[in-house]
């Protein structure tokens, strides 16, 4: 796999795993409008994942036949959904990262990434608006919703740091103009997230714990169950077409 492919796969894995998580909400959302919205976001992420995985190899072989250590998504996207507050807090953190990422990648020197990002940036902007609106409503809603969304945020917050880690792969791609430096994305993310949390009357969590490992295939316990569920049918019928 070339460095660009390895990087493309990271981004595709983020989208696929988060799309899978969001799709677990099907028929369980707090309102019918949210059933539509959550599935819509899941579908966008799944679509982006398919474009990215498809640029690396066979999308189904990559999605259904890779074992845990071969997945390179960030840990944040594989965390369990928790309640609606936690799901929206996680979505805020992810979308606030994806918007500037896709915006930067839209002018990548890599044509595949640039093409995918051009479409994904519009979708991620909607995801960010949607998650922000909910985090604000929940944070500034009732005492119960405030407490719940704050707890959800506190739970997912430490995992956000991994999104902005750098390593030799990222550094080499930054140098070639293929992607943006995490150090450039981080302040944009911080500004967005802090603005939303302030409006939501929520406290920006402080954490010295920075769980990591997703980009090198070291995942959380929850991830094994996600893969088991997602892959079992495909794996039970080797070589079958669907």
């Amino acid at each position: 796999m070339t460095p660009v492919q390895a990087y493309t796969l990271r981004l595709g894995d983020d989208c696929l795993v988060l799309g899978q998580r969001l799709s677990e909400w099907a028929a369980r959302a707090p309102t019918l409008e949210e059933d539509v919205a959550l599935l819509n976001i899941a579908l966008d992420l799944l679509g982006t994942a398919r474009s990215l995985l498809g640029a690396v190899g066979d999308e189904d072989a990559l999605a259904f036949l890779r074992a845990e250590p071969d997945w390179t998504n960030a840990l944040l996207v594989e965390l369990d959904n928790g309640d609606f507050g936690r799901t929206m807090a996680r979505q805020l953190l992810v979308s606030a990262y994806q918007v500037p990422l896709w915006a930067a990648l839209a002018s990548s020197t890599d044509p595949v990434l640039a093409g995918v990002a051009g479409k994904a940036v519009k979708e991620a902007t909607y995801h960010l608006d949607h998650a922000s609106a909910w985090v604000v409503r929940l944070g500034d809603g009732t005492a119960e919703s405030h407490a719940r969304v704050q707890a959800g945020l506190d739970g997912v917050w430490p995992y956000a740091a991994e999104l902005f880690e750098t390593d030799p792969l990222v550094e080499s791609l930054v140098q070639q103009g293929i992607t943006a430096a995490p150090a450039v994305l981080l302040p944009v993310w911080q500004q967005t997230v802090e603005r939303v949390l302030a409006e939501a009357t929520l406290t920006v969590p402080e954490s010295s714990w920075r769980p990591t490992g997703g980009r090198s295939g070291r995942h959380t316990e929850a991830f094994g169950y996600l893969l088991a569920e997602m892959q079992h049918l495909h794996r039970a019928h080797p070589g079958a077409s669907w």
């Binding site: 696929l16 899978q20 799709s23 677990e24 099907a26 028929a27 019918l32 409008e33 059933d35 539509v36 599935l39 819509n40 899941a42 579908l43 799944l46 679509g47 994942a49 398919r50 995985l53 999308e59 189904d60 999605a63 259904f64 569920e229 997602m230 079992h232 049918l233 495909h234 019928h237 079958a240 669907w242």
Partner: peptide, 26 residues
């Protein structure tokens, strides 16, 4: 069956369908 759909194409079709049904409800 969304989380267990056997291919990504089928998963996308099924997510879109279940989303349509929520829309029909609306």
């Amino acid at each position: 069956w969304i989380t267990r759909a056997p291919s990504l194409r089928r998963k996308a079709i099924l997510v879109a369908k279940v989303q349509d049904e929520a829309g029909h409800g609306l």
